[in-house]
Amino acid sequence: MNIPQRRAIPVILGISNDLATHLTHLYNITVANEETFSEAVAIAIRSDESQKQTDNISTGSSSLTTSNDLLKLLNKRGLRPLPEYRHHVISELIAMVESFDKPRTMAEVKATLAEKVPISKSKLQHILNAIVRSNCVLNDNSFPVLSFTLPFSNLISNDPAVIESKCIEIYVHTVLLIDPDYFNNLDHIVEFQRVIGSNVLDMELIRKIKERLSLSR
Rank of each mutant, 00 (worst) to 15 (best):
F143E: 15
L138G: 07
L124W: 04
D140L: 13
A130N: 07
T149K: 15
Q125E: 11
L146Q: 08
L146W: 08
L146V: 07
S120Q: 08
D140T: 12
S153A: 14
T149C: 09
F152S: 02
I131A: 04
S142G: 04
N129W: 01
S122R: 11
K123N: 14
N141Q: 14
S147F: 06
I131R: 04
V137M: 02
C136E: 00
S147W: 08
I127T: 08
N135G: 08
F152D: 02
R133T: 05
L128H: 00
V132Q: 00
V145C: 01
N139W: 07
R133S: 09
P144N: 13
L150G: 01
L124G: 00
V145F: 02
S122Y: 13
N141W: 08
H126I: 03
C136S: 13
V145N: 00
V145I: 07
L138K: 07
K121D: 14
S153M: 08
Q125W: 04
S122D: 10
R133M: 15
S142N: 15
T149H: 13
Q125R: 13
N139F: 08
I119D: 01
Q125P: 01
Q125V: 04
S120Y: 11
P118G: 06
D140I: 09
S142T: 09
F143Q: 14
N139M: 06
I127S: 02
S147V: 05
S142C: 10
S134I: 01
I131Q: 05
Q125Y: 08
S153Q: 10
P151F: 09
V145K: 00
I131P: 03
C136V: 06
I127A: 02
S134G: 03
S147M: 03
A130P: 05
L138M: 12
S120H: 09
I131H: 05
